[in-house]
């Protein structure tokens, strides 16, 4: 659930676009540099972007009955880091608006900030942190993916609360109300996404661990440990 077209007032649309701009601009700079150094950057990032898009259009089994979609950006953050994920996120959000009628064009800046910047940054931080302290690989991936998803909706609630503060209690009351309503559907969804992404990684490690080694997502030791524990 992204913020739909027409929902945010014009000045908030502009505000969030300005906030998102430096992150995306740095991502473009990084992308240009990488594409210059390695010829295979572009095709491989493209398949990953398409993968995120297709993943985010799959319906997850949801406990509360509403049909919900994963964000998929947690996976991007783990694989490519937050800045490249920001670019993939912009493109994926644009396609979601134009292909799936999810989100919108004027609310793109706000949605990019919540889904492609804030969430992935947190997820990337959790993944790096978990790896540094030697937490179990699957637990780390689960936490990174689930909290990326959850944090995206915390930021969305904040964006809605800033645009529409409550009469009594202002932004904080409004924020807790929005967050509480989103929590009904998003907490189960975040847990689902965490489990699915963690299991997805298991399949990738089993079949093509070399991809993860190449992207520097896992160390050879980790891969060996995981493959032994599966076998």
């Amino acid at each position: 659930m992204h913020i739909m077209e027409g929902f945010l007032p014009l000045y908030w649309c502009i505000f969030w676009s300005i906030i998102s701009f430096p992150f995306v601009a740095y991502g473009v700079y990084l992308l240009k540099r990488l594409a210059g150094e390695h010829r295979d950057t572009l095709p491989l990032l493209a398949v990953s972007g398409a993968f995120i898009f297709v993943l985010s259009s799959l319906k997850l089994p949801s406990v509360t009955g509403s049909c919900s979609h994963p964000t998929g950006t947690g996976l991007g953050a783990i694989l490519f880091g937050p800045f490249l994920t920001a670019i993939l996120g912009v493109i994926v959000l644009l396609y979601q608006a134009v292909f799936l009628a999810h989100g919108g064009l004027t609310t793109l800046g706000a949605n990019v900030f919540s889904m492609a910047i804030a969430g992935p940054f947190l997820g990337y931080g959790i993944y790096r942190g978990g790896k540094a302290i030697g937490l179990n690989t699957f637990v780390t991936i689960f936490l990174a993916a689930a909290l990326t998803d959850l944090f995206t909706y915390v930021i969305t609630s904040l964006q809605l609360a800033l645009a529409f503060p409550a009469q009594m209690g202002g932004i904080i009351t409004s924020f807790t109300t929005f967050a509480a309503i989103f929590a009904l559907t998003q907490i189960p969804l975040a847990i689902m996404e965490g489990i699915i992404i963690a299991l997805t990684f298991k399949h990738i490690i089993q079949a093509r661990a070399d991809i993860l080694l190449r992207l520097n997502v896992l160390t050879p030791d980790q891969v060996k440990k995981v493959q032994e524990s599966i076998a």
Binding site: F51, L58, L60, P61, I196, H203, I204
Partner: peptide, 14 residues
């Protein structure tokens, strides 16, 4: 099933 689909999809995409 979804996790298996995700994993296979990623590998085939790559």
């Amino acid at each position: 099933s979804l996790a298996m689909l995700g994993g296979m999809l990623f590998i085939r995409a790559w």
